[in-house]
């Protein structure tokens, strides 16, 4: 049966690139969680490829949304109808799955956020500012250093009897401290448990300070798969933590939902270029503009010898070129 009216959401993050296809009711038909591996374009293309294999010609994409740190790039490649930041996307997705949610904890690859929702709208948020300790990449690194698969990492914490106190403020110091505790003979379980507690403590001090964390509390992002962190959050907050079904692709889900909302309100055709983007060739080149003292680093995306987009300039003279603004003189 040909599914009418589907929407695509893509979240290009530092660690993972996620794709979600939803139907017109907002139900997820397919979700993909792929490693970005430092090559976002490749990840986007292979994601689209997989979706093309699964659905082939059986669905119509009526709208597409992109989010995550690579949202501009994804937008250029797939042609999306809405480009949104991660905070809004995560909030939209959480509200869909847990309609009365009031607090959203999100820990991804390189950043962590807290989002407070009141009366159905994002009321306040905070994002880690200075250090990425406690985010997915750091846990990944520790798991591989201890030679434990990341999927198992959290379980170790659950069998611990005592949490060793780890200095969690900074990723580098936390690692030295963990090594120190290993050398003094603490068990791996207790160290991992200690690390989970340190990271939660760090999160609470950095992001949640002065904020009222009302229930229901939802925890999402890749790190929500870590049972040790979940347990540490429950102990710290003395509350039940809800892990939504699609916790690992919430950004992409939110982007798809927003694309659906936008396209439903306004009757225009989607910008989505179609599933055959894998046949096209994409190149990225960088250059430094020397027209003024800012020396901006420019990124140029080229597909089949056509410049799709340029960005990175502070004055806008390069990025505007491709928006058909015509060449304008901007002083220096």
């Amino acid at each position: 049966m040909r599914e009418k009216g589907c929407y695509l959401g893509i979240d290009v993050g530092s660690v993972s690139t996620n794709l979600v296809i939803i139907d017109s009711y907002g139900n997820i038909l397919e979700k993909l969680y792929l490693k970005t591996g430092g090559q976002p374009i490749k990840a986007i293309r292979s994601g689209i490829n997989i979706l093309a294999d699964v659905f082939g010609q059986s669905i119509d994409i009526l709208g597409a949304g992109t989010t995550g740190s690579g949202r501009q790039l994804a937008n250029v490649i797939i042609g999306s109808d809405i480009v949104k930041n991660e905070i809004t996307s995560h909030a939209v997705a959480a509200q869909k799955l847990v309609p009365n949610v009031r607090t959203i904890l999100e820990i991804g690859g390189q950043d962590s956020k807290i989002i407070l929702v009141r009366n159905g709208v994002v009321y306040d948020f905070a994002m880690n500012t200075v250090c990425a300790a406690g985010t997915g990449s750091f846990l990944d690194r520790q798991a591989s250093r201890l030679e434990i698969p990341i999927e198992e990492f959290g379980k170790y914490a659950l069998s611990s009897t005592l949490a060793v106190r780890i200095a969690g403020r900074c990723a580098v110091f936390a690692e030295s401290d963990m090594i120190h505790k290993q050398q003094t003979g603490h068990s791996i379980e207790d160290i991992i448990n200690g690390l989970c507690e340190a990271l939660v403590r760090n999160y609470m001090n950095n992001l949640a300070k002065g904020k009222e964390l009302a229930e229901p509390i939802v925890f999402q992002g890749g790190v929500a798969a870590n049972q040790g962190i979940v347990a540490a959050f429950e102990r710290e907050l003395k509350a039940k933590i809800i892990i939504p079904e699609y916790y690992d692709v919430m950004g992409a889900y939110g982007a798809a939902l927003m694309a659906r909302e936008k396209m439903r309100h306004k009757a225009y055709k989607t910008n989505f270029v179609g599933f055959d983007i894998s046949k096209k060739d994409y190149k990225v080149s960088t250059m430094e503009c020397h027209d003024c003292s800012n020396m901006c680093e420019l990124i140029k995306i080229i597909s089949d010898d056509v410049v799709l987009a340029r960005w990175g300039d502070r004055c806008g003279k390069w990025s505007e070129l491709d928006r058909n603004y015509g060449q304008v003189s901007l002083g220096h």
Binding site: E86, I87, T88, D111, V121, V122, Y123, D124, M127, T129
Partner: peptide, 30 residues
């Protein structure tokens, strides 16, 4: 609150600003 030093990454900074504007617009509508 935005904290700036020579290592501030522009992308993360702009994400926060964009999300904040979104938040304010939604709150105003509400």
């Amino acid at each position: 609150t935005l904290i700036i030093d020579e290592m501030t990454g522009e992308a993360g900074y702009l994400t926060r600003i964009e999300a904040f504007v979104d938040l304010l617009k939604r709150r105003k509508e509400e």
